[in-house]
């Protein structure tokens, strides 16, 4: 059968561009540029299938989880839908938020603590089972070799 799919299009090496883009992302990450912001949602894409697809995505999600564990209580915008009283409503909400901070901070700090523990435990489990799996695979390989 005839497939005849032509891929010879002129010139842009997008793989090279993507490598450069990823290098820039890593450099920014190393400089701590992203730490200034809580980007918990930024890596949050609802797709469980991707998790099934292999270690590459699992590692990526684990990295995202570690980044997102450090939640920031101030990372949202206080806004108002009111057309005429927008400013006073926002001011009132900000005042209430400040007054409640004494109570919410307790929950917030406990949540941060919990998140950090979950993230670290998951990372530890991944390492532990990856190591165990590698040992078992080696053992199967050596048994196969012995048998043949």
């Amino acid at each position: 059968m005839n497939d005849a799919f032509q891929i010879e299009t002129p010139g842009v090496d997008v793989e090279k561009v993507m490598a450069e883009i990823r290098r820039r992302v890593e450099a920014k990450r190393a400089r701590g540029v992203y730490n200034q912001f809580s980007l918990a949602d930024a890596g949050h894409e609802h797709d469980t299938i991707a998790l099934k697809q292999g270690n590459e995505y699992f590692d990526y999600y684990l990295k995202s989880l570690l980044l997102a564990a450090e939640i920031d209580i101030n990372d949202f915008e206080i806004a108002s839908k009111s057309r005429f009283f927008g400013r006073p409503v926002v001011g009132l909400k900000k005042l209430i938020w400040k007054l409640l901070k004494f109570y919410t901070f307790r929950m917030f700090s406990q949540q941060r603590d919990f998140n950090a523990r979950v993230a670290v435990i998951l990372q530890g489990m991944d390492r532990r089972y990856s190591r165990k799996l590698a040992q078992l695979e080696d053992r199967i390989k050596s048994l196969d070799e012995d048998r043949s």
């Binding site: 891929i7 299009t9 002129p10 010139g11 842009v12 090496d13 997008v14 793989e15 561009v17 993507m18 450069e20 883009i21 990823r22 820039r24 992302v25 920014k28 990450r29 992203y34 980007l39 930024a42 890596g43 894409e45 990526y60 995202s64």
Partner: peptide, 29 residues
């Protein structure tokens, strides 16, 4: 995108941001 050379791809926000900035900096590309 890979076959054509006509597009870039992102897997998270950080890469999305960098793709946009890269294209803005390189209009000829």
């Amino acid at each position: 995108c890979r076959l054509s050379g006509g597009g870039l791809w992102f897997r998270d926000y950080y890469e999305f941001e960098e793709c946009v900035l890269y294209l803005l900096e390189n209009p000829e590309l």
